[in-house]
């Protein structure tokens, strides 16, 4: 009886977090696509050296980051996956979103500061341990994108 009540509550929380979580996810992907399309013409590359022919007038460090966390439903799936092993599909959209968001924030910042391109882009991921459960839980994941923003004398 008690087990059934507990199961019922768990199922309800799973349903609600699934619905809300996927709505938020869908909206975020839409926003990402729109903003990416707007910034498509802005070059971001992992080259360490400047492409030949570029004349730099000014440069600076560009950075963008975001901390994201999983909804309960996806964490539940990931928990089960931890028993069976294999591909943790429920994490992929989250990390993809977070990484694109970090890249976009970096680029948007550079655009706002009047830069023309970002070279030597680097991406970092780090897990923020939760204070609960002796640091074993995950509070969130931070994505950091950084690179060297350059202003060009002459457009490439």
């Amino acid at each position: 009886m008690e087990a059934l009540t507990q199961l019922g509550i768990t199922l309800m929380v799973l349903t609600v977090t699934y619905l809300v979580g996927s709505a938020i996810e869908r909206r975020h992907f839409d926003s990402l696509r729109k903003r990416e399309a707007r910034l498509r013409a802005f070059p971001t590359v992992t080259f360490e050296r400047l492409p030949e022919g570029w004349q730099v007038a000014d440069s600076g460090l560009a950075m963008g980051s975001t901390v994201v966390s999983l909804d309960y439903f996806k964490r539940f799936l990931a928990g089960l996956r931890g028993i069976l092993g294999g591909r943790v599909r429920s994490y992929e959209p989250l990390l993809d979103r977070a990484r694109r968001e970090a890249l976009l924030r970096m680029t948007e910042g550079a655009v706002a500061d009047g830069y023309d391109a970002i070279v030597n882009v680097r991406l970092e991921t780090s897990r923020l341990a939760s204070s609960r459960g002796r640091g074993k839980g995950t509070a969130g994941v931070e994505m950091l994108a950084f690179g060297t923003a350059v202003k060009l004398v002459r457009q490439p």
Binding site: P43, T44, V45, F47, R81, G85, R87, L95, L103
Partner: peptide, 15 residues
Amino acid sequence: FYGVVSGNTVRAKHV
């Protein structure tokens, strides 16, 4: 050159 490309995968090991 076209821009940054990336690939990811998240894996768990079984018990």
